[in-house]
């Protein structure tokens, strides 16, 4: 088997298992109160981490580029209660325009 197919197989099995572990093990059952409180905190924690990594991460470097400009525009629009669809499009347009300059 070529290297590529080994990667497809191993990464595929690993990723599918990671996604399925929780739902297959405890799917459909209520979580105990403590676990529920932790899940409630997990969403904002991971969303904030995704904002940071998607905006400034480049491998192991922190870079300030057009993505951050797009994010700044998004933050301003969100403060003015613009719907998310408009915010996402404006962020992409900002980055595209800055890169085209």
């Amino acid at each position: 088997m070529s290297d590529a197919w080994v990667v497809v197989l191993v990464v595929g099995v690993a990723t599918m298992s990671l996604k399925a572990a929780g739902p297959v093990a405890i799917g459909g059952r209520e979580l105990p109160p403590r676990a529920l409180r932790m899940v409630a905190a997990l969403a904002p924690a991971l969303l904030a981490a995704l904002v940071v990594t998607q905006a400034v991460e480049d491998g192991q470097d922190i870079v300030f580029d057009e993505r951050l400009a797009g994010l700044a525009v998004a933050a301003v629009l969100l403060a003015f209660r613009v719907p998310i669809l408009g915010v996402v499009v404006a962020a992409a347009a900002t980055a595209a325009i800055l890169r085209a300059l």
């Binding site: 905190a41 969303l47 994010l71 933050a75 992409a92 980055a95 595209a96």
Partner: peptide, 27 residues
Amino acid sequence: GLDAAFPALFLGLLAGQVKDRRAFVAA
């Protein structure tokens, strides 16, 4: 600019999540 769409989305969804002090601290 499509890579800039994702952090903007996550920020927008985060803004809707931070409803109490604990969520704010977690973020």
